[in-house]
Design a protein around this nucleic acid. Structure first.
Lengths: 184, 184
DNA sequence: CGCAGATGAGACATTGGTGTCTCAATTTGG
DNA sequence: CCAAATTGAGACACCAATGTCTCATCTGCG
């Protein structure tokens, strides 16, 4: 069953998102299986890393679907995306850190696809007048992903409460750090 | 002369911030020296990594000094910090990615010190009424650093023009992605 | 109970990177 | 111009992680 593979991959993320160079021993232990079994499931380290990346992209893609980012007004869509992506923030943190992944054309193409959807969301929002136009859609898209990854790391290391993460992400990204003197 | 060491370290950052597992061969070539000479300057890989981290922290600390983050109103101080830190964004990107670094107590202590200064800046800004209080100073501090690192990566990979980087960082972080309907 | 399949523990060879060395070539300084 | 020092290129041993194997153990099922 695929659930087995995925549960191993999830355990791997927990280790790899912090220490990308963790030994297979450590990953196997984290997954609660032996190194031998880990090898039976994944042909080798490279394959494991690739599978983790693929899982991350599948989850991110699924989050975009769940949030229906192509529908409704852009701000609401982004807020939905935040809620949908926060549970998989650790996966995204891994995707952000493991640049090596994008050497694989398949992974890279899949990433381009998802990234294009996010960029399109920001472009749409700019046209709608919801998002600022002084910042390029490309930068907005990249910065958003950086903050998602940041959320993932912060939660994982206990610096941020999981319950606060969606709020913290959405509010900072959308509203910025400055307090608005608009409610006098 | 220390300039020699630092120039090698700078070259190392250029490689390591993208591929933390780059071989010493590659780093030496990037620095324009042989692997033998690299070994003569730094006893080994571990030492090299540590020195790069230390350089990053020195630069970050210097940026905090240059920006005089403890003086004046918090928003202006943060804008000064942005300008001061952007040239060393790649170093910061390395610091953000290399969690392993913080196993070294000396590095970790130095980081704590700088991080405390940034947190204090946000706390001060919140008390002044400049920064939002719904977001914790800790999260503001961490998110700021995430975005600095993001700037470093984006510039290095050519996705963001260096000339735009300070503006993009300051505007997004302070103002957020949402357009303000306050100038009708 | 007995069998088939899966798993864990450990041994073993391989390998790629690192650390160390030597020596020739180049540069520096007198 | 020569001597000293530095560097680059390459050879070499070492080591740790990986990949592969075997075998004992455990589990599920008839």
């Amino acid at each position: 069953m695929a659930t087995d593979r995925d549960s191993v991959l999830e355990a791997a993320v927990g280790v790899l998102s912090r220490r990308p160079t963790a030994h297979l021993d450590e990953i196997a232990r984290a997954a609660g299986i032996s190194r031998a079994t880990l090898h039976r499931i994944f042909p080798g380290r490279e394959a494991l890393i690739r599978e983790v990346g693929a899982l991350g992209l599948r989850r991110f893609s699924a989050a975009l679907d769940t949030a229906r980012v192509e529908e409704g007004n852009a701000e609401a869509a982004l807020r939905r995306l935040v809620d949908a992506v926060v549970p998989d923030a650790a996966l995204c943190a891994f995707l952000a850190g493991e640049n090596q992944l994008y050497d694989d054309p398949e992974i890279n193409d899949l990433w381009e696809l998802q990234d294009a959807r996010v960029r399109a969301l920001f472009l749409r929002g700019q046209k709608e007048g919801a998002f600022r136009v002084e910042l390029s859609a490309g930068w907005l898209s990249e910065a958003f992903f950086d903050l998602v990854a940041g959320i993932g790391w912060a939660v994982q290391e206990g610096r941020l409460a999981p319950r606060e993460s969606a709020f913290s992400l959405a509010e900072l990204f959308l509203g910025g750090a400055l307090r608005r003197p608009d409610t006098p």
